[in-house]
Design a protein around this nucleic acid. Structure first.
Lengths: 149, 149
DNA sequence: GGATTTTCGATGACATGTCAACGACAGGTA
DNA sequence: TACCTGTCGTTGACATGTCATCGAAAATCC
């Protein structure tokens, strides 16, 4: 079993990485709100909704795809609905469920937000990695995120 | 200036890394609550407080060290105070301020929590990196976190 | 078919974070 | 000394997430 302490190398790596875990999302989120008036949650909902050709998802499927609880997605889309970004429709396949639809307004907001967001991800992250680092980080991220829960 | 789109490599790296940004903290936080009954915020407050020999910090200094707003720290320590983990004392240097003190109870909770937490960080993260990856990740994290805000 | 169990989305209570405002005090300056 | 001006911690309003629970509808079982 793992020992309950860290050596100096591990300690410093963990500290540095933990700082990255906090600062990078904070900066990207700040940029997003400033540039587009969207919270990171808003952006994720809009962009995931836009992945389907008809821009419609059953709430439960969208929640599963995003790894959100249905409760969270229900609350959040209620607020987004009030802003006209998404709409609810009855699900013809399942009378318990509902379909979330990306409205034209929501799609427009997303289309204007995306380029700014990409620039932000570059400026704050991608542009500071070389090709080797990019490849290693990708492999490492997938490996760790794919560990059993 | 950066282009407003990503190539396939960048896109996949960013997706994988973003997934890591969400899943890793979620798992560590879940372990922490299960093992010790502490939220990640609790743990950070306790461990930072314990860094000073007398276990006392002025609220403003602790907030700066942790990169939290004073408001957030004030709210949070009010709740922790009700649980007996920390205490407030007048600051002899500055009558506006207050000193936050780690109580004996709080220190005990931290001491019992720390080994579990380290095991969790190992099992979910460190143990899956080799020495090269560790070094690269540390350099890369510091580089990006140290970018101007 | 009819009864039981499960799933779906909504909801309310609660925990936790942000932001703007505030009173109290410190520190500089005339 | 008597002002400004800024800082310190608190507070209240609000946004957002979790959790337990609910009614309705589907799925399963006999």
């Amino acid at each position: 079993m793992a020992t309950p302490w860290l050596n100096a190398d591990e300690e410093q790596t963990w500290r540095a990485f933990r700082r990255l875990l906090v600062t990078l999302p904070a900066r990207l989120d700040r940029d997003l709100v400033r540039d587009s008036g969207l919270s990171p949650a808003d952006y994720e909902v809009l962009s995931t909704l836009s992945e389907k050709p008809d821009r419609r998802w059953a709430l439960k499927d969208l929640a599963a795809k995003m790894e959100w609880s249905r409760s969270r997605l229900s609350h959040h889309t209620t607020r987004m609905q009030a802003r006209g970004l998404v709409a609810r429709e009855p699900d013809p396949q399942d009378a318990r469920g509902c379909l979330l639809r990306l409205t034209d307004d929501g799609f427009g907001v997303l289309e204007r937000a995306a380029p700014h967001h990409v620039v932000s991800v570059r400026a704050r992250f991608l542009d500071h990695l070389d090709a080797d680092e990019l490849a290693l980080l990708r492999a490492l991220s997938a490996r760790i995120a794919d560990l059993p829960d």
